[in-house]
Design a protein around this nucleic acid. Structure first.
Lengths: 165, 165
DNA sequence: TCCACTTATCTTGACATCAAGATAAATCAG
DNA sequence: CTGATTTATCTTGATGTCAAGATAAGTGGA
């Protein structure tokens, strides 16, 4: 009886007409992600970053030289609204981790680039970040990790297909 | 190559020293939950609820008669801070879905109860909510659902043990 | 060329959340 | 019984997010 089982049991007692089967896996997914997120956030905080700022710096870093992308490029990878991204870039610009420059290809747009400080920060943070992820995933025995990933792949593919197309 | 694979491939090219294996399953978990959450939120919105308000009303409903709990009882089930809960209860009270009454057992505390309107709202919402969950989970073929849940159970148990004890 | 339409980004206003601290009541040791 | 500590909830101030709309520049057909 994990906490999700308890919740299902309560519903079964007080709303026996409901089919609460799906609540099990979906509830567990949510809780797992909640805990993982909290740990990853704690780790990033050591570098002065939040998940939000990490998610802007990381695409710039992994894009390779010259470490610059337009807000639109960033948005495409990020499941947030444009206003949120504007705000995140503002904060990172104030912190000196990125710089805005005019986009020579499109005067409506900008190029957001890592500064030297931004490069150093994301490089150190991502090194620690992947170690944290490895540690968190290793909570699950290796055979179970191996069994889990194909299922997540399948689920994500289905869910994304339904969301976008 | 799903979007998470693309991100890993970029890191491997530009930071070949990193072990980005764990990013795969952890990234997929996050994205799956993001999509599921969005769908569930949309469904709840039809009842004038958010995930936040649902998460207060639901424990009251499944507690059974007299459908009342203290803020502390609610907090224990809810992974949020006390200030957030205060605010949620304030909103629900304004909306007429719950009522605050003094707690006869402890004068520091209150009893939060479903009003008639609150009861009707959560009863309709949860009926639709479990149907939505069932529909979302059925994106995954049944054998894969059956394989997934034990893995999530194991992962949640490990992660929760690490978080709390 | 010109106008309508689309695209890229930013702005505004409302709201939910958290961390930290305040308040008040309960508990417990002596 | 008293003072110190703990517990339960609320308050405050800062921040991040979104939805909707504004602004400005690019695009394409007549």
């Amino acid at each position: 009886m994990d906490p999700v089982d308890e919740i299902q049991a309560q519903w079964r007692r007080h709303r026996p007409d409901l089919d609460v089967e799906a609540m099990g896996p979906i509830g567990r997914l949510g809780r797992i992600v909640h805990y993982l997120t909290r740990e990853m956030d704690r780790n990033l905080a050591q570098f002065g970053l939040t998940a939000a700022s990490f998610d802007v710096l990381a695409p710039l870093r992994r894009a390779g030289p010259p470490y610059s992308l337009s807000p639109g490029d960033l948005l495409a990878t990020m499941m947030i609204t444009s206003g949120t991204l504007t705000n995140r870039i503002d904060q990172l610009e104030k912190a000196g981790l990125v710089a805005r420059a005019p986009n020579p290809d499109d005067r409506r747009s900008f190029l957001i680039s890592l500064t030297e400080a931004g490069f150093a920060t994301i490089d150190a943070a991502v090194t620690s970040h992947v170690e944290t992820q490895k540690r968190l995933l290793s909570i699950l025995p290796e055979e179970e990790q191996a069994a889990l990933d194909p299922l997540l792949r399948s689920f994500l593919a289905g869910v994304a297909a339904r969301a976008s197309g």
